[in-house]
């Protein structure tokens, strides 16, 4: 009896201490144009915050911006209300964050996908080209026609970063491989147009491609659907999309935005907050290729060994994956 009481007391104390900690932070998340349900980048951030909430019971507030002027406004609104830490999602928020973070030097901020060099900002950037390199290798190994393809959302630097790594990886396996590349559009709608994504993929299949990688947000749903319909292989992006069409998605280039958001919130809550730049590459498990039950049959041992070896080489620096952002060119 005494023992039970003791256990109960310990449990209670434990609960109370979490409750006490739980009151210490009031996090907020600001999404960019895509919004929290974009099935891609912003949604990954939402999932990370959601995971943190479920684990700790700490609620957070969020906001989806609608026009460029709201970026600063939303950050300031949250900061004024004492929200802390405030996480901004997307490179487009950098200019707004730089301004607002200076106005609120005691508030902790974080930004995903860009670098803001201020003492109260944590910047999280991903090495998308490294993960894309690995899925490019897999695509080249899986292709029987020696032709693979890429569907991007909009022709912006971030998407070139994906495509350049993909090309380099594919060419590392097969220097003569043909790579077809298409962008969906030039307006914000390019990220939310699955019909057009499907059309682009089908036209690429008509030109002999049999593996297609998308970096196009919700547009990619159409790309993956078209690949599944035509018996070709798709490659998912940002989150693990293998389950969408089991057996017909070769792999996914996972960009762990959810993990990064969750970790940032956890660090703030547990007092491990740090600022500066966090680079999330293969070495940090920030990007990776997805292998699970859904695609196990598509990846043979030889492919797996080759990719894992390449991963080691990239981590050790033996293989240098070209970053489009360094010189704005892609030599592949």
């Amino acid at each position: 009896m005494k023992k039970t009481t003791a256990i109960c007391a310990t449990l209670l104390a434990g609960l109370m201490s979490t409750a006490a900690l739980a009151e210490t932070i009031k996090p907020a998340v600001v999404y960019d144009f895509g919004g929290r349900n974009d099935r891609s980048f912003n949604e990954a951030a939402f999932n990370g915050a959601q995971e943190f909430k479920e684990r700790t019971g700490i609620n957070y507030r969020d906001f989806e911006i609608q026009n460029p002027s709201q970026r600063e406004q939303a950050l300031r609104n949250f900061a004024r209300r004492g929200m802390d830490p405030i996480i901004t999602i997307g490179f487009a928020q950098a200019a707004a964050l730089e301004k607002v973070a200076k106005e609120f030097p005691d508030t902790r901020f974080a930004i995903v996908d860009s670098v803001v060099d201020l003492p109260n900002v944590r910047s999280i950037v991903f090495r998308e080209e490294q993960g894309s390199y690995l899925v490019g290798m897999l695509a080249a190994m899986a292709s029987e026609t020696d032709t693979i393809s890429f569907v991007g959302g909009m022709d912006i630097p971030l998407i070139r970063k994906f495509s350049c790594g993909y090309k380099q990886g594919a060419k590392a396996v097969n220097p003569d491989i043909e790579i077809i590349e298409n962008m969906t559009g030039t307006t914000g709608a390019a990220w939310t147009d699955p019909v057009k994504g499907g059309e682009l993929a089908r036209s690429q299949f008509a030109r002999d491609s049999d593996v297609v990688f998308h970096a196009a947000g919700a547009t990619g749903m159409g790309v993956l659907q078209a690949a599944a319909d035509e018996g070709k292989l798709g490659i998912g992006v940002d989150s693990n999309q293998n389950h969408l069409h089991p057996g017909q998605i070769l792999t996914s280039m996972v960009k762990a935005v959810d993990v990064a958001v969750d970790a940032t919130l956890t660090d703030a809550q547990e007092g491990n907050w740090s600022t500066g730049v966090q680079v999330m590459g293969l070495a940090e498990n920030g990007v990776s290729w997805a292998l699970d039950d859904n695609n196990a049959d598509l990846i043979n041992d030889e492919m797996k060994a080759a990719v894992e070896a390449a991963k080691q080489d990239i981590v050790s620096g033996k293989v240098e994956v070209h970053d489009f952002m360094v010189d704005n060119t892609c030599p592949f």
């Binding site: 490179f91 950098a94 860009s114 022709d155 912006i156 630097p157 971030l158 952002m325 360094v326 704005n328």
Partner: peptide, 11 residues
Amino acid sequence: ANVLRPTGSMQ
């Protein structure tokens, strides 16, 4: 994306 963007900027 190509002409007016300062090199190294993602935006």
